[in-house]
C-alpha cells in the first residue's frame, strides 16, 4: 500500500511517503510557519524522491487535530481533496496521538500536550499496546490546573510529551516528581509513524464531512449559544 502521511497541526511540518512498512521518504521541518504555502511543494518533492506519481497513492493519512485551526485545515484539505480527486482512501489520526506514536517502547501512560494559551491545553492520555496505541482518556481542551488533578489517578507513571511541555514543566514536576517530560526531537510529530499507524486504521467513509477536530467552538459561536439556548441549527450553509 502506497501511503502519503501529513501533519500540519502545529509549528512542525512533517510529511512522509511509505510503501507498506517501508518508509520511502520523509521530511520534518520546524522553521517554517507557512504550512499552507509549503506543505504541497514538500509533498510533491517527497513523491518525486520516492519515484511515485500522485496517482500511485492508495491512501492519505492526516493528523486531524487538535492544533492550530489554520494549520489543521491545510492537511485536512489536502487529505480530503486528494481522497476525492484521486478516489483514494483517507484516514484521520489525532494530532496528539501522532506524538504518542513516537513512544512504542514505554510502559508509561503517554500524555501528549499542546499549549492552547491562558492556562488551557489540548491533551489526552494514551497507552502503547502490542496491537497499537490505545486511548485511555480522549483528547480534550482543558485548563491545565484541572487536567493535573484529573491525572492524579494515574499516580506517577506518566510521560508528558510535546514542544509546549516546556511551558508547564515546573507544574508537572511539582505534581508528578518522577514523571518523564519530553520536549526534544522525540516530541516532534513523525509522519513516518503516522503513515504506519494509518495503515491499521479504518478509512473515512464520508470524505465530504471529514473536518478537523478543533475541540473548541469559535468564540462567536460559544457566545451566541449562551445567548440563544436551544436555537442551534445544523443547516447553516445553503447551496444556491
Amino acid at each position: 500500500m502506497k501511503v502519503l502521511a501529513l501533519d500540519t497541526s502545529n509549528r512542525p511540518l512533517t510529511a512522509a511517503v511509505l510503501d507498506g512498512n517501508q518508509l520511502l521518504a520523509t521530511t520534518t521541518i520546524t522553521t517554517e510557519r507557512k504550512h499552507a504555502a509549503f506543505a504541497l511543494p514538500l509533498v510533491a518533492e517527497l513523491l518525486e524522491r520516492a519515484h511515485l506519481q500522485p496517482t500511485d497513492l492508495d491512501r492519505v493519512v492526516v493528523a486531524n487535530g487538535p492544533g492550530s485551526y489554520t494549520g489543521l485545515r491545510v492537511a485536512v484539505t489536502i487529505g480530503k481533496v486528494l481522497a476525492t480527486t484521486l478516489k483514494i482512501q483517507l484516514v484521520g489520526i489525532s494530532s496528539l496521538a501522532t506524538l504518542a506514536l513516537n513512544f512504542s517502547d514505554t510502559n508509561r501512560l503517554i500524555v501528549p500536550l499542546f499549549d492552547a494559551r491562558n492556562d488551557l491545553v489540548f491533551s489526552g492520555v494514551y497507552q502503547t499496546e502490542p496491537a497499537g496505541l490505545k486511548t485511555v482518556l480522549p483528547d480534550r481542551h482543558v485548563a491545565f490546573s484541572r487536567w493535573i488533578l484529573e491525572l492524579q489517578k494515574f499516580h506517577d507513571n506518566l510521560l508528558f510529551v510535546g514542544q509546549d511541555t516546556l511551558h508547564f514543566v515546573d507544574q508537572i514536576k511539582e505534581s508528578f516528581p518522577t514523571a518523564v517530560v519530553v520536549s526534544g526531537p522525540k516530541a516532534l510529530p513523525q509522519a513516518g509513524e503516522l503513515g504506519l499507524a494509518g495503515q491499521k486504521q479504518a478509512v473515512v467513509t464520508d470524505v465530504d464531512h471529514f473536518v478537523p477536530r478543533y475541540l473548541r467552538l469559535t468564540q462567536a459561536e460559544a457566545d451566541w449559544q449562551r445567548e440563544h439556548p436551544g436555537e442551534e441549527q445544523h443547516n447553516y450553509v445553503e447551496h444556491l
Binding site: 485551526y69 485545515r73 478537523p212 462567536a220 459561536e221 451566541w224 443547516n235 447553516y236 447551496h239
Partner: peptide, 25 residues
C-alpha cells in the same frame, strides 16, 4: 455556490474562523 449567509446572520456579520470552518465542510 454554497453560501454561509444564514450562519453569519447569527453574528450580524462574517466571523472569519466560522467562515473557514464552513469552507472546509
Amino acid at each position: 455556490v454554497a453560501t454561509q449567509i444564514k450562519s453569519h446572520q447569527r453574528f450580524g456579520g462574517v466571523v472569519p474562523e466560522v467562515a473557514s470552518r464552513h469552507h472546509i465542510e
